[in-house]
Simulated assay, not measured.
Amino acid sequence: MHRITTIGFDADDTLWHNEHYFRLTEKRFADLLRDHADPDHLTERLLAAERRNLGHYGYGIKGFMLSMIETAIEITEDRVPARVIREIIEAGQEMLAHPIDLLPHARAAVEAAADTHRVLLITKGDLLDQERKLAQSGLGDLFHGVEIVSDKTPPVYARIFADHGDGPERAMMVGNSMKSDVRPAIDAGGWGVFVPHGLSWALEHADPPLGHPRYREIPDLGGLVALLQQG
């Protein structure tokens, strides 16, 4: 681990809260359509729409809004009231304007890592929304580079760590998603550090690479400095 020169940080639910706002909006969505579908069935239909639409809209709030509208149209068999569509759009706009709430130890972890390593923010989703959140977080000046990508895959990590550092073999990715942060970074040749978050989107679930020599897990970002000090 002493050979690591570059550390990538995920953003949503690693440095600041995000999934919480999606869950609140899903509850609001269920209330709007309570006369047409029970909440569990509606959640299943919405998740199916999100999975189906990832290739069209990518990750982020705007794609989530469109998937809610599509689900509402399907559930009501094209009879969804315009009022419901308006409220879905308003809910999405509120999500796009929500204040940034940093997770515990986020600032201290990035500051400490930046003292000894090149630190990068590597996040996926809507460009404008991610830029807004980074600006409001107050962490922007700490990063040596920022990459907002459409998806996180091994080739994407290999390219980023080659462009901004000494290649994936000397890089570490820190994040709350096993699917997007940990496994693809390891597959690219780097280290993957899992920082669990209480809430996780179903489409980000994946099995941990238990036993892999470049896999680590810490309970929160407060454990990152001690991990980096390991030989």
Rank of each mutant, 00 (worst) to 15 (best):
M1F: 04
R3Y: 07
T5C: 05
G8W: 02
F9V: 05
D13E: 10
L15N: 04
E19Y: 03
F22N: 08
F22H: 08
L24Y: 05
T25R: 15
R28Q: 14
R28H: 14
F29R: 04
D31E: 15
R34H: 15
H36M: 11
D38M: 08
D40W: 13
D40V: 12
D40P: 03
D40N: 10
L42V: 01
T43Q: 11
T43A: 15
R45G: 01
L47E: 13
L47G: 11
A49R: 03
A49K: 01
R51W: 00
H56Q: 11
Y57S: 04
G60K: 01
K62Y: 11
M65R: 06
I69M: 15
T71N: 04
T71I: 05
T71W: 03
E74V: 10
T76N: 06
T76M: 04
R79V: 06
P81N: 07
V84I: 15
I85E: 07
I85T: 15
R86A: 15
R86D: 15
E87N: 11
A91H: 02
A91V: 05
A91F: 00
A91E: 08
G92M: 06
Q93V: 13
E94Q: 14
M95Y: 04
M95V: 06
P99F: 05
D101V: 15
D101P: 00
P104A: 13
H105L: 09
A106E: 03
A106Y: 02
R107Y: 10
V110W: 01
A113E: 05
A113P: 02
D115A: 15
H117R: 12
R118Q: 13
R118Y: 06
R118E: 14
K124L: 11
K124C: 06
K124G: 06
D126G: 12
L128P: 01
D129W: 00
Q130M: 07
E131K: 15
E131I: 02
K133P: 08
A135R: 14
Q136R: 13
G140M: 04
D141F: 07
H144R: 10
G145M: 04
V146G: 07
V146A: 07
E147V: 02
V149S: 06
V149N: 09
S150V: 12
D151E: 15
K152R: 10
P155F: 04
A158T: 12
R159M: 12
A162W: 01
D163P: 10
H164L: 10
E169A: 15
M172Q: 05
G175I: 02
N176W: 01
N176L: 00
S177D: 08
K179F: 07
S180M: 06
D181T: 08
V182T: 08
R183E: 11
R183F: 00
R183P: 00
P184F: 03
D187V: 03
A188W: 05
A188K: 03
G189Q: 05
V193P: 00
V195P: 03
P196S: 13
G198D: 12
S200E: 14
P209G: 07
P209V: 13
P209L: 06
L210G: 11
H212A: 12
Y215I: 08
Y215A: 10
R216G: 06
E217I: 11
P219L: 00
D220V: 04
A226W: 00
L227E: 01
Q229L: 09
Q230S: 15
